[in-house]
């Protein structure tokens, strides 16, 4: 038997965290600010996720929405969809939840350094990408141009609106957004997210494209990135799977021989092309 490693009791045991702020983002989306009760930092990288426990309900994998540059607490932005997330939406400030993680590889920040970064966020894909965007903005000198494309279905589904405005007004970030279907109040772009690619000018060999959104968006966004001439190993995507244990054992998130909770959830397009059943 191979037993060179000492098991951590914490492998399946969550740490307790307090909800210190709960704020509504859209009809079914809220952002939760959490503080670990042991006083420690979460210590995550943008693109990683945690397993959130509501004791008696269960556990769900949730991407981390705040940048690690924000100290003392972290944020999870969550749509009420399943058992755990619906129950979480019923909680108020002061409630206690369980946290395991951070898990997963996160975005390859070291490779991004010195390069231009094109962020493509479709709907809820903004949640993990917000961590990356704010991280880059807080370490602005380490990165080249930052371009953010955001698309959602309707103006009412825009998320983190205050921050979107801030990014729009900021000289060191190029921010473009669109909605699939507009309304009377909407004066911005209308059309799917790929229409924004016509409006940007990038230097493909020096650019990393990072896209997170629904699986259907990936097909079209990848095609646009390839058309722009971005190399396949510089197109970065994050995958959704049912990550139950988070530690590469339970099998639910497996794609071929890859455990998304371990080797992912962030992959390059070049890697994903080798994985069948990935997108």
């Amino acid at each position: 038997m191979v037993m060179q490693l000492t098991p951590k009791a914490s492998l399946h045991l969550p740490r307790l965290a307090e909800l210190v702020r709960v704020e509504s983002l859209a009809q079914r989306e809220k952002v939760f600010e959490l503080k670990l009760k042991d006083g420690e930092e979460l210590g995550h990288k943008p693109g990683q996720f945690v397993e959130v426990s509501l004791f008696g309900i269960g556990e769900a994998p949730i991407s981390i929405s705040s940048s690690p540059t924000k100290k003392g607490s972290f944020e999870l932005a969550i749509r009420a969809t399943g058992n755990v997330t619906n129950a979480l939406h019923r909680l108020d400030k002061g409630a206690t939840v369980g946290i395991r993680g951070p898990f997963g590889n996160g975005f390859p920040l070291d490779e991004f350094r010195g390069k231009d970064v094109l962020v493509v966020a479709g709907g809820l894909g903004l949640f993990p990408l917000r961590s990356l965007i704010n991280y880059i903005r807080d370490n602005r000198a380490d990165f080249g141009r930052l371009t953010v494309l955001f698309g959602c279905r309707a103006p009412a589904e825009r998320l983190f609106c205050d921050e979107l405005c801030k990014w729009q007004d900021c000289k060191d970030t190029e921010f473009l957004e669109t909605v699939d279907v507009g309304d009377d109040s909407w004066t911005g772009s209308v059309g799917v997210i790929t229409t924004l690619f016509l409006k940007i000018d990038i230097e493909p060999s020096n650019t990393y494209a990072v896209a997170v959104g629904p699986p259907i968006m990936y097909r079209f966004v990848i095609a646009e990135c390839v058309k722009k001439g971005i190399p396949e190993d510089q197109i970065i995507l994050s995958l959704e799977r049912r990550m139950k244990c988070g530690v590469g054992k339970c099998g639910h998130c497996q794609i071929n021989n890859v455990y998304v909770c371990q080797e992912g959830p962030v992959f390059t397009y070049a890697e994903l092309k080798q994985l069948k059943e990935a997108v």
């Binding site: 399946h12 426990s53 004791f55 008696g56 309900i57 269960g58 556990e59 139950k244 244990c245 054992k249 339970c250 099998g251 639910h252």
Partner: peptide
């Protein structure tokens, strides 16, 4: 070796357990 992870709450609603079971 795949497993599922679930919570079970006591009838009294004041305690419970997390368990894993074959999946």
């Amino acid at each position: 070796v795949c497993f599922d992870v679930q919570d079970d709450v006591a009838f009294t609603l004041d305690k419970g357990e997390r368990y894993r079971q074959w999946d």
